[in-house]
Computed example of a mutant assay.
Amino acid sequence: MTVDVLVRNNVNVLGTGSQTIMFAHGFGCDQDMWRHIVPAFFEQYRVVLFDYVGSGKSQINYYDALKYNDLHGYAQDVLEIMEVLELRDVIFVGHSVSSMIGMLASIQAPHLFKNIVMLGPSPRYLNDLPHYYGGFERRDIDELLEMMQLNFIGWASYLAPIVMQNPERKHLTEELEKSFCSRDPHIARQFAEVTFLSDCRIELDLVSVPTLILQCSDDSIAPVEVGDYLHSHLKNSRLTQMNARGHYPHLSEPGETIRLIKDYLASA
């Protein structure tokens, strides 16, 4: 069977610029989460949006539990999209786990990437004390995964306000909860397990692409220590502390997110 990559990942190409910028969504989301961000790039860039298999309007029949039991499976899809569209010198903007997916893809094919922008990234969510603080103990993740399995809707309503971190703006939490609930529970649970138990620290030394790390304030998923760790281990990286609170600045503070990405690209 020939895989139609563009259909599989619901790829959309927008904008009129010659330089390509690709936006990759995080866990429990889809490309629609970028809707406040991407119009600001249409004039200057060719904007590529897509959904990971199992998210958004991707073709769920392509989901392969073995392939996607590792972040490299998702990185392979990113490279396939670039190959089909014949992209080069791509600016890759990844939210959360997509930061690491894009990084892994860039290690395999550095010539395809010009810059990486990491929004709320983490190379490892689990603590590895005393050398590394990721923010989570193993029992925290195990309880989260168990809750997903036993009560998926309950898990979504529990997690959404914690990670959004904007209690006075209930519509943001409601949107995120709705996004979580729209996922296939079995695929979402596997993606959560792959994400939260991943460890990309050893790969950091292999990255050659210039990188911007955008560190959010009060981020329950990627604390400040994680941003500092990434900056100290990624060659040619810049760390910027955002005013935006929570783990979804492209929803809560799109203006600041746009400005910081554009400022970086203008000086890169």
Rank of each mutant, 00 (worst) to 15 (best):
D228A: 15
R238Q: 14
L85N: 13
S208V: 10
D51I: 08
I37L: 15
R35P: 01
G28D: 05
D228E: 03
R169H: 14
K235V: 03
G15R: 04
Q149E: 15
H72W: 05
L172Q: 06
R138K: 13
A222R: 01
Y68T: 09
V3W: 04
K178F: 11
L126K: 06
P167W: 02
D219H: 01
M1N: 07
L234K: 02
P223W: 00
I21E: 01
M103W: 05
A24F: 01
Y62H: 14
T20E: 07
R35Y: 12
R201T: 09
E253F: 02
V207T: 06
D199S: 11
N69I: 02
S208H: 11
T195C: 07
G73N: 06
G56D: 07
S99G: 15
D263F: 00
A268Y: 04
V13N: 12
S267C: 08
M147F: 14
D89C: 03
S99K: 08
D30F: 02
V48N: 03
I37K: 07
I141N: 06
G94H: 03
T20S: 14
N115T: 10
P249R: 09
V38Y: 15
V53Q: 07
I202Q: 15
V3R: 12
I141S: 15
H25I: 09
T195P: 00
L126P: 01
I91V: 13
I116T: 08
E174V: 10
L145T: 05
S99Y: 07
R189E: 09
Q76R: 15
L112C: 09
M100Q: 10
A268T: 11
G255D: 05
Y63I: 03
F41H: 05
E225L: 08
S106V: 10
I162A: 08
I213D: 15
Q241I: 11
G102K: 04
E168T: 12
L104P: 02
T16L: 10
L66C: 04
K67Y: 06
C200A: 14
H247L: 03
